[in-house]
């Protein structure tokens, strides 16, 4: 009995050994949440208006868009020290690391440009003209396409990562915010905040395949505004943050049907899974907290107070 309990305890702790890093847009800090205790264990001071946040593939570096400092900061996640800056172009908002672990595709919100930076040589490899207010960034799993969405131009721009040129532009609904490829790379999903939809594209044809709408009883449809979303690796769920509707939608990626709506904090923005994807951490901008969702039963587990206006979230194992 003791042995079983001990064994359970060991697996439980090994499964929950990691951290969720949250960028606080209006506090110029990162809150680090321990996934086992669900407490903030560290607060790290960073550049101005931190938004996009992601780890290198080996988790040895954290990349952070410090938008108002006009730079991407590279941080040692163990010490929390800022190691150096990357030339990012002006007002970097969001970015994506290419599967080669070397090229960072950055959306420069104020400049209608996407900047490609080599994180090793710390040099700008390319700058690509895109629509107004680029934000959502995605790279296909095979690395062949990067996609930038522009909020005011309402397009997804498809960039060939070899030539660094735009090869297609596809219209989406008003104010696209976030883009993700499915794990198999067959589909690209793009959320439109003001349009209130997610558009699903066929990657090969670069044409619209499906459109997902959201409806929450008691909330006016105009206030249901999809922003960030994440897909589970097993292809079972897509979780969609619905902004001022204060809910996360659970979508079946095979049928495109909404399965459930989970109440979270106010103005839910982005999210990150923990390592085994048993839990989902959502950033709630207006209430200044993070909601932890139990993925097994789709119920909120806990609310954790972080800094002012939490924006992005990223996971690293420890």
């Amino acid at each position: 009995m003791v042995r079983i309990a001990l064994c359970f305890w060991l697996t439980a702790t090994s499964a929950l050994a990691g951290e969720i890093w949250v960028s606080n847009e209006k506090d110029d800090t990162i809150s680090v949440i321990d996934e086992a205790t669900l407490e903030v264990v560290r607060t790290i001071e960073v550049g101005e208006r931190p938004r996009g946040i992601t780890f290198s593939k080996d988790y040895k570096r954290l990349y952070l868009c410090a938008s108002d400092s006009d730079t991407v900061q590279v941080i040692d996640p163990v010490t929390g020290k800022i190691l150096h800056d990357l030339p990012s172009g002006e007002d970097p908002e969001q970015f994506i690391l290419h599967p080669d672990n070397k090229h960072l595709y950055i959306a420069n919100e104020d400049d209608a440009i996407a900047t490609v930076v080599d994180v090793e040589s710390r040099k700008v490899v390319a700058q690509i003209d895109v629509g107004i207010e680029p934000e959502g960034m995605a790279v296909s799993p095979d690395g062949s396409f990067a996609v930038v969405t522009s909020e005011t131009t309402n397009m997804a721009h498809w960039i060939d990562t070899k030539s660094q040129k735009i090869v297609a532009n596809t219209l989406v609904d008003q104010r696209p915010r976030h883009a993700e490829f499915t794990k198999d790379g067959d589909e690209l999903w793009v959320s439109a905040e003001i349009g209130g939809t997610i558009t699903v594209f066929d990657t090969d044809k670069k044409s619209e395949k499906a459109k997902i709408n959201f409806e929450i009883k008691g909330i006016h449809p105009d206030r249901v505004q999809p922003v960030g979303f994440e897909m589970t690796a097993d292809g079972k769920y897509v979780f969609v943050a619905l902004g001022p509707a204060n809910h996360v939608a659970v979508v079946d990626p095979k049928t495109y049907q909404v399965l459930d709506y989970i109440l979270v904090g106010r103005r839910v923005w982005h999210m990150a899974f923990n390592g085994d994807q048993s839990r989902l951490f959502t950033t709630n901008g207006v209430s200044g907290d993070v909601t932890v969702i139990d993925v097994s039963n789709l119920k909120p587990l806990k609310t954790i107070k972080v800094g002012r206006f939490p924006w992005g979230a990223a996971y690293r194992p420890t």
Binding site: A112, G131, I132, T152, T153, N154, M155, H157, I166, N169
Partner: peptide, 10 residues
């Protein structure tokens, strides 16, 4: 100017 940015892709 905003229209033109969108328009150049179309």
């Amino acid at each position: 100017a905003g229209n033109s940015t969108t328009g150049k892709f179309l």
